[in-house]
Amino acid sequence: MPDDLSMSLPALPPTEEIAALVAAKLNLEGPLLPILHELQETYGYIPENALGIMAEALNITRAEVHGVVSFYHDFRSRPAGRHVIKICRAEACQAMGGAALGAAVLERLGVEWHGTTPDGAITIEPIYCLGLCACGPAAMVDGRLIGRATFETVIEPIGERVK
């Protein structure tokens, strides 16, 4: 997926803080995914300096941790824009015009799927099914679900805040 090079990475979080988050999950069976969710929840992405900490805590290689992080679509290596629009690309939504909706929003924002607008305001991502298949097309804007989504209902919630 194309990384937006215009966005600089924020300063890395303190190592001790990451280590504490990691340690709090080590009692779980198979703790790596819960740890990654916790990190992303806390920082909005998986900080580079967390990889070594996780590897050491779990007694696996840094490469293995990187392999897991990069396997799953949800985990980001850099923060998303201030607002995140997810539009369903799957079949049931396509049957109700989902593809045209996605194309219209991409065109309006001037970015590709996974892209972030140059001002860092909006990231747009494809999603494959939100389970709203009988009221498509479906979208999720900043975590809020939208059924029978239109260009207006997707853009409006964030439109005013976009400078």
Partner: peptide
């Protein structure tokens, strides 16, 4: 019972890939 949350990989609906994911591995 414990709930675990996946991370956006469709293939993890396949049972063996799901098990790998639960173990904290790539969902292969």
């Amino acid at each position: 019972l414990e709930m675990r949350v996946g991370a956006g990989a469709y293939v993890c609906g396949e049972e063996t890939s799901l098990l790998n994911s639960l173990e904290g591995k790539r969902g292969v």
